[in-house]
Design a protein around this nucleic acid. Structure first.
Length: 103
DNA sequence: TAGCTGACGCCCT
DNA sequence: CAGGGCGCCAGCT
């Protein structure tokens, strides 16, 4: 699912969990992303943030600042560990994806 | 087996 | 506006 997030947009752990059908299992999304480091095709984990637009997973990237770097390369600006225009950049899977693709 | 720990989120003090 | 409890559940002591 994370691979479907368009470049230049971001989504949240909670939205993914909700779309899957387990709104309260957002932690599992993070757990999965943690394991997705060496996955192929690559998973754009930098496009997933928490519900406040905070880059809570930045410590799990190669080096400090990598996540911001990846986001900036797609035109997404960050302030500290937060996404600047999170409200506008937030991409809700439920609006674009078909449930049936993920059963 | 029991307990702990998360890249979370919601609800209640 | 902080801080704490709880659900979630895979995987590791």
């Amino acid at each position: 699912m994370v691979r479907r997030v368009p470049p230049g947009r971001v989504t949240t752990y909670g939205m993914i969990a909700a779309f899957i059908g387990s709104p309260k299992a957002a932690r599992m999304v993070g757990w999965a992303l943690n394991k997705s480091g060496a996955a192929f095709p690559p998973v754009p984990a930098h496009r997933v943030v928490n519900r406040n637009g905070l880059l809570t997973g930045q410590q799990f990237f190669d080096f400090p600042g990598k996540m911001q770097e990846l986001l900036l390369s797609e035109g997404i600006e960050t302030k500290g560990n937060a996404i600047c225009d999170f409200r506008d950049l937030c991409w809700n899977p439920a609006e674009y994806l078909d449930q049936n693709e993920f059963v």
